[in-house]
Design a protein around this nucleic acid. Structure first.
Lengths: 144, 144
DNA sequence: ATTAATGCAAAGCTTTTGCATTTTC
DNA sequence: GAAAATGCAAAAGCTTTGCATTAAT
């Protein structure tokens, strides 16, 4: 019992997370996952690429793109697409949250919790913003 | 009094709508606006381009792009961006509504009304869908 | 040893832009 | 007639892909 590192078996080691997802734990993938786990902002592919090159200056942008798609498909990371700006990524959040974009600065602000619209509007207000527009994207699957 | 076509002065003529917005009413812009007004789906730039060429086979794709941006900036149309799919457009809706994407078919379904999350979920359910994920994008402006 | 992943460079798409010509007001 | 919009073609992103090489299991 005491030899178990953790009763819930939750891996924090990127390489192990990859293997548990049935993926090969390459150095590049491990780097990407480490970078994303350490990011509090929502980095773009280019941001991740730059940081990955600081760890290993031979990584290619193609691998970053392939890795982002792989991790997204595996459900380990989440892709955020806002208008035409390059996609941003975050580790898959435990609890769902919304995003507020500052239309003047482009700043991306997380809004915790799954609130109803009215409450959400109040929260945004408390953050010091006026809501210019809001739009919910639902993804569904037709019931069979 | 009886000579007024409409007490609210709402123009339905695309050329007039453009002029009221302070824009030059070119043939190309009029076509684009006419096409969008007649569309119940949410056409992409390419869709609009194809239809515009049926009206005038000399229009260029550059003009369509420029026109879409112009109309969007003027608030006459609304741009919808979903993941990496090419942007889709619709006339600016009177009442806000959400969109449901069928992740299997890519079909885009309008959900009328500005409902709170729980109610929205029920509506989606009534449409015969299970919600796989939902994400609200808020656009705000920092209060000064 | 097999099988998969990577790096490189080229290609693909969508969108934007410079500039001469045409159109709108 | 002056100012703005268009068409064309080239350029500029961002993202994907083919293939030989390298790495993971």
């Amino acid at each position: 019992m005491m030899t178990e590192p953790n009763s819930e078996q939750l891996s924090t080691d990127p390489a192990q997370i990859l293997r548990e997802a049935g993926l090969r734990a390459t150095q590049q993938r491990t780097s990407v996952l480490t970078i994303l786990a350490a990011s509090t902002d929502h980095p773009t592919v280019d941001d991740v690429y730059d940081k990955a090159r600081q760890l290993d200056d031979s990584v290619s942008i193609a691998t970053i793109y392939r890795t982002m798609l792989l991790l997204e498909t595996a459900g380990l990371i989440r892709k955020l697409t806002f208008d035409d700006a390059p996609a941003r990524y975050e580790m898959t959040p435990n609890r769902d949250h919304d995003h507020l974009i500052d239309i003047d600065t482009g700043e991306l602000i997380e809004i915790p919790g799954r609130e109803i619209s009215e409450l959400r509007a109040r929260i945004v207000n408390d953050l010091g913003y006026d809501v210019v527009s809001q739009h919910t994207i639902l993804r569904g699957r037709r019931k069979h």
